[in-house]
Design a protein around this nucleic acid. Sequence first.
DNA 1: TAGGCCATCTGGTCCT
DNA 2: AGGACCAGATGGCCTA
Length: 219
Amino acid sequence: MLVKAESPAPPAEDELLLLGLASPAPSLPSSAGEEEAASPARPGSARPSGPRRREGKRRPGRCRTAEAAQRLKRSRRLKANNRERNRMHHLNAALDALRDVLPTFPEDAKLTKIETLRFAHNYVWALTETLRLAGGAAAAARAGPDGGLEASPSPASSCSPAPSASPYACTLSPASPDGSASDAEHWAPPRGRFVPPPAAAAAAAPPGIGVRLNSGMSA
DNA sequence: TAGGCCATCTGGTCCT
DNA sequence: AGGACCAGATGGCCTA
């Protein structure tokens, strides 16, 4: 990767290749056995490690058409590359938008992609629980002191939807909202990089809304 | 320096 | 046929 551009960069070299002006232009294969001359799209870019087709059996009389086919193929590939690049840029933009609505601490902390998805997953669940518990708050108050999850502090206290009011306490904890084991595998965080909530919120965190403190924090 | 994260390229598959 | 989507591969950057 050469450029970490948030916006799609003009594929200058790609265009050159399309025009047959860039160095790897496949215009004149030096030998019949030459291997896909135009493949190195840009320096530092990935090259497929798999078996590559060889053109060794190209017949002399078909050189021109084979070349044209090669060029057409290359042209399509480059267009596909551009589309794919744009697609990923849009995906990243959506991810950024998601980051924007997720409360982080510190506020400018940037979650990784996987962290963003995990946190959003838990955050949505926390908000859902908040609504659910708020709806049944009166009943819960009459129900008595015990009651498992229902008796634990409301997620609202450990996962504030208002970042400005207080640091949230949502987490990237492996514990999935629905508690399924398979889900836990999917959502298990690689490591504790995410930081946030104060100890008070940590203590109040219910199952699935665990709190992570720096690298050593536990759910 | 190893490992994590990321952008990009690429070929395959599915869909319109 | 062409585009969207996907997963694998690769190399760069950054941090512990």
